[in-house]
Amino acid sequence: MTTALITGSTSGIGAAFARRLAADGHNLVLVARDTKRLRDQATELHDRHGIEAEVLSADLSTDDGIEAVERRLADRKHAVDLLVNNAGFGNKGRYLDAPLADELTMLKVHCEAVLRLTTAAVGAMRERGRGGVVNVASVAAFVPRGTYGASKAWVVQFTQGVAKDLTGSGVRLMALCPGFVRTEFHQRAGMGTDSIPNWMWLDADKVVAEGLNDLARGKSLSIPDPRYKALLGAAKLVPRPLLGTISSKTGRKYGPR
């Protein structure tokens, strides 16, 4: 049986990855900050699917938390075959509304942690000649819209660049870029969602299913819904300055309240 490590595993897309991978027979290493929720999740997945679910409590906004996960990924005796870098959050408000410390914490989680954990995982995977990494980004990566979008753009560029460098190694990397997904993301950030049209919402389990299919196909970028693929295709035709204006107005309409 193979083992998958998932950060931010207790809710949203991370929890959907855990459900799907456990159902497929993968053992799991579940990573999040809330130890009780992790233990409850591990027990449920073990009882339902008969897999082993290891709990690793870690705060990826701290060096200690990142180092704890790095050590687990580097453990050659208990190899991790698939890493899902899913942990992340959003800050409420436009630029200068959020404290600089919160913006820096976001970069720590979205960029530094992803870089360090990917590096720790890929080193061991390349030695074995197999493995995979899914870095969860967002369609926000493709429009000029604040620190969140900028951090996710970094995730996409980093992931695709590393995927190219590792061609032929047996290690696959993919950036997963969903749109609006019904998770705890907006609630935790204090963001209202009433203004977001129903057609823009995606189901986390469907996002994961399509993402894993794209990983198996060898794609380095997955936009897991035809509606968002069409929107991003249209966005490429819009001049960059105009796209920034549209993004700003859309963010005020559909973003934090």
Rank of each mutant, 00 (worst) to 15 (best):
R130L: 00
K77G: 09
S222H: 13
I246A: 10
T105M: 12
D102L: 00
N213C: 12
R19Q: 13
N198T: 15
L56M: 07
R39V: 08
G179N: 00
R20V: 07
P241K: 11
A234R: 09
R126D: 06
A216H: 14
H78T: 14
D97V: 05
V109A: 02
P144Q: 09
S222Q: 07
V155F: 11
I66N: 01
K249Q: 13
V208L: 07
T119V: 09
A18T: 02
K92Q: 13
S61T: 07
T245C: 11
E103M: 12
V208D: 04
V208K: 03
C111D: 14
W199Q: 15
N135R: 03
F89T: 05
V162T: 15
P178E: 02
K92M: 05
Y254H: 07
D47E: 13
F142G: 01
Q41L: 13
V181I: 02
E127A: 12
S220R: 15
S220Y: 05
S195A: 15
L231H: 01
E54T: 15
G233W: 11
R19H: 10
I223M: 03
W201C: 14
D63I: 06
V29G: 08
A42N: 04
V80Q: 07
L237H: 05
P197S: 05
N198V: 13
A98R: 09
I246M: 11
V143S: 00
A98M: 12
D40P: 00
I223T: 07
N91F: 00
M191H: 14
A98S: 14
G244L: 04
L221E: 12
A140K: 00
R217G: 04
V122F: 03
K108C: 04
L73E: 03
T147E: 04
R94S: 09
G131D: 00
T245K: 14
I6S: 03
F89V: 02
V31L: 10
P99Y: 05
L104Y: 07
C177D: 00
T62F: 06
T62Q: 05
G179L: 00
G88K: 10
L60R: 03
R71Q: 13
S138L: 03
A137M: 06
G8V: 08
S57M: 02
F158D: 08
G244P: 04
E54Q: 14
R240H: 11
A124K: 13
T118I: 08
L242R: 08
R76M: 07
V156N: 12
R128I: 05
L202A: 11
E44W: 01
A153V: 10
S222A: 14
K108W: 04
A141E: 06
A4M: 06
S222V: 11
T2V: 11
M125Q: 08
P241G: 10
G8S: 08
G190L: 06
P224E: 07
A32P: 06
P226Q: 11
A87R: 01
G233V: 04
A68M: 08
L56Q: 06
R128T: 06
G211M: 01
K253M: 09
P178N: 02
V207Q: 02
M174C: 04
V55M: 00
G244C: 07
T245F: 12
R20Y: 03
R71N: 12
I13Y: 01
T119C: 09
S138P: 05
G168Y: 11
D97G: 10
A68W: 01
L107E: 12
H46K: 13
E127M: 07
G190K: 04
T3E: 09
R19K: 13
S220D: 15
L215G: 01
R33V: 02
M191L: 08
L5W: 11
